[in-house]
């Protein structure tokens, strides 16, 4: 890509950002909120494996929301399933942070 192409691409992106202002704003806010939750859950797991109700208690999030995040962190390889504790599984941090 030469300089002029790069420049026009930049301009076009800028225009697109204006056009999609509302949804971009929404997505950015969502990312901020999500990152807060991910951070809190990761922090809660730093001092040992926990079940979903335990993570929820530590973070103050609801249990359904906690499970949604745990499932997602597990999918992208940041959290793994640990041993079972009663009717619940414990979740633990994994070393690799790929994709999360």
């Amino acid at each position: 890509m030469n300089e002029t192409d790069k420049k026009s691409q930049k301009e076009a992106l800028k225009a697109l950002r204006v056009q999609r202002k509302a949804s971009i704003e929404r997505a950015r806010n969502a990312v901020k909120e999500q990152n807060k939750r991910v951070k809190a859950i990761v922090a809660a797991l730093k001092d040992g494996a926990k079940t979903v109700p335990e993570i929820a208690a530590a973070t103050g999030f609801s249990t359904p929301e906690t499970l949604l995040y745990v499932a997602t962190l597990k999918k992208y390889g940041r959290v793994g399933e640990g041993p079972k504790d009663g009717d619940y599984f414990k979740y633990e941090l994994l070393e690799s942070k790929a994709g999360a």
Partner: peptide
């Protein structure tokens, strides 16, 4: 699947 096992979605309990 989302949990790779059957858990109830409200809190991750393995249902009895």
């Amino acid at each position: 699947g989302p949990y790779q096992r059957v858990l109830r979605p409200s809190d991750g309990k393995e249902p009895d």
